[in-house]
Design a protein around this nucleic acid. Sequence first.
DNA 1: ATTAGGG
DNA 2: CCCTAAT
Length: 638
Amino acid sequence: MVLQKRLDYGFNGYQVPPIPRAARSVRRRCSLKRKTDDKQMCAFDLLATVAGKLLLEDKSSGKNQPSVVEDSVKKEEKNEDKPKEDQDCYERNFLFTELVSEIPDSNLCPNEVSRPASGITTSDGSEPEQLVNDDCKLRLGIFNPTLNLDSSNFESEDESRKQIKMDRKSSILVSSVDSVKFPFCKDHNTPCGSFPIKRDNVKLVNRDDDENYSEWVKPSTRNNKAFRPSPRFGDRKIRKLIASKHCRVAPSMKDDENYNADTERGDYLNRNIGLKRQRSLRDIPFKKRRLYDCSSMSNSDEGSDGICSVPENGTNGGVPSSYPARPGVSQTPISTAGEHTSFHARNHHVKLKIKSFRVPELFIEIPETATFGSLKRTVMEAVNAVLGGGLRVGVIFQGKKIRDDNKTLLQTGISHDNKVDTLGFTLEPNSVHAPRQSFPEDRAVQLLHDSPQPLARYPPAPFTRSAPDTQSDNPGSNFNNNFIESDHDSAASPSDISLHKSIPQSKALVTVPTTRPDALAVVPLRKSKRSESAQRRIRRPFTVAEVEALVQAVEKLGTGRWRDVKLRAFDSAKHRTYVDLKDKWKTLVHTARISPQQRRGEPVPQELLDRVLTAHAFWSQQQAKQQLKSHPETCLLL
DNA sequence: ATTAGGG
DNA sequence: CCCTAAT
């Protein structure tokens, strides 16, 4: 299933205050909205996790999936138009062209799993060998928009790192994640999907910029003889995707054209660069626009936002026929969509295939002394953050957005044996609930929250090799864990598929003519006011399974070792901090003490609550004993 | 960075 | 969940 998702995220060139508490989960900074649909959220979490895992693992994944890392440095010449803080910054651009990976479920036959995914990625099937792998595989390509290196040139991370250090005048790398694509499959019941992340600022670029682009490329090839400007496999793949027989449901508009054009050109970040270099008036609106895009998390391409999916007729065996209720079985995020679409079908199930989501523009800032391991991790976190929230699913049928969530598929004319190919899905900003037009202030503030940038610029952990390694230790289990969690979560919360507002709204935002002073005004605001205070994290009720795990861990470790509890039972649950666990325990104890009638939320089995009380009592006693031993006099006095 | 506890 | 103080 391919779903294409796009998303404008962050904007280049602005510095962000240092992250205050690295310990906080990325999530928190990323919660673009308080109310985010859990189901989607989890779905994206999962995807992100997978992507992250893959990113981390690629190093060890073998010869066939080289980590192509290309570095290049591009000096910003004269940025009069740029904000001050960027004046003397050099800029490096990395582009994750492609990250393809198959993730076989550990419980299932990898071979089985692998296939469909790749088949999906290359709709024409002409590039299967690139996608087929035995195990978890990853192809990670990082390439510079202007320079290209042969993969062979960078065999080792060290080498890459050297490369990076070549020009260290700048302390910051501005990277751009362009595309993360990872087909994934869980089992025969779950659809597979790819998840490319694509920039989509194409719409902002004019034809004229193309010229700039080409003339731009040359000068920057300075420290690399091996660089060759060329479309790489990633681009090819993308092009294929686009050109594939699968239709794009959304009405093809300007953006689409541009997009295709860019794709053809094989590199579209260049446009951006060309733009920058030119530093013309055009740049201002561009930036400003990005800001607004960020704020609303919207893409607003004249209504054809998001990209659609291109369901094929239910030929591909990857679609579940009965998956709404399968607690034990993991559901892919995609299933969210599928579930909705097949929701009302009685005996017949509409089979959908979502091909990909597209997520454009993910800007990342990372010290140039960082290792690629940390780069990958950072990217993972950024991706995780982006996917973690702020998005919702929209449905397009025959070019029109389905707004009525209560309509059945059948009523709309979708039955199990037809029309599916005109059904599309979009990922949309999950923000924008109140009209902002009248509250420019609000909008500005919104930027602070909605802008992913702080996230994307999440500082990488120490540049050690060990860190990424530890994370990639047990990808399988982690993956599964996340899967299960997201499953639980998704089961617990209804999904909201409303498209209202988002499109028109974003449109409006974009259309609003923006002036330069205006644009500049926005920036300081984000920096001064609440740039550091992240939005409150989204509420994610503990599932029974989680409670179970927590109880078990606490029984074993006690109530004062939340760090260990976290490590032991929630290591893979990124969104559960030890503080969360501690808090949960607190509420659990409370819950256990009150009468069942007073309890709210998903009922926790009495058995668990009993254990909570028991464990709590036990460990409290232990604690008391300890204190008595260590401070006998104090106790005696009391 | 963790822990503990109030909000 | 958040925030703080204290470790």
